[in-house]
Amino acid sequence: MSHHYVNIKDLTFTYSDGNIALENINMYITHGESVAILGSNGAGKSTLLKHLNGTLLSDKGEINIGGIPVTKKTLKKIRETVGIVFQNTDNQLFMPTVYENVAFGPKNLGVDGEQLKSIVELALKDTGTIHLLQKHPFRLSGGEKRKVCIASVIACSPEILVFDEPTAEVDPKGIKDIVNILKKFHHTKIISTHNLKFASAVCKRGVVLKHGKIIFDGQMEDIINNTELLREAEILDDY
């Protein structure tokens, strides 16, 4: 079971407008580990996560998921292994109803009939959104949208779960729900956030990004107690 590791080697990424969003990223994540990616707005968190399932491909550096390098040729397999909840919810809710949205992924993987129905319902129950089943996603509140996106990805039963800002727009009760959902998911988890309390509730390890570089990689406890580091990374909430 140790094959769901993630290995990032010397990853550098420049956007087409010349913006260097990631510089020399090195990281090894073992199977079953939960890692928080911390950093202020624009630090490069989303850019890093988008590399994990090949939404962005860089020609500088390598990423390896459980022995498979992330390249154009392996995208199909990689995308079945890595489930990613993107930061922007609206663009992930493209089907007419909540139900169909959650069913979209499993359907692509060949599930249908009763099995499909039970998978979708389970994912909606786990995220506390089963009552929204027939609603149009456009009509949901911000937090509800977030939860439905999470359900949509969980329903694909990925082996590695990647979350970009899962707590944005979610109320305290909702964040607690998400912590519980994530604790139930026993595979590898990679979560970007600037919510330190949430990060330490779910992850033991934390990686701090600043201007596209890793400035710290270690235990969440050490990060939280290191005021100096938090100030440098501009994620200290001392307002």
Binding site: N53, R79, F94, F104, N108
Partner: peptide, 21 residues
């Protein structure tokens, strides 16, 4: 840009023209 994002999120959930069921 949104169209692009939508497409990527479809791909992320296993959408593929060649293996429709």
């Amino acid at each position: 840009y949104r169209g692009e994002d939508v497409y990527y999120s479809m791909l992320s959930r296993g959408f593929n023209l060649q293996n429709l069921n």
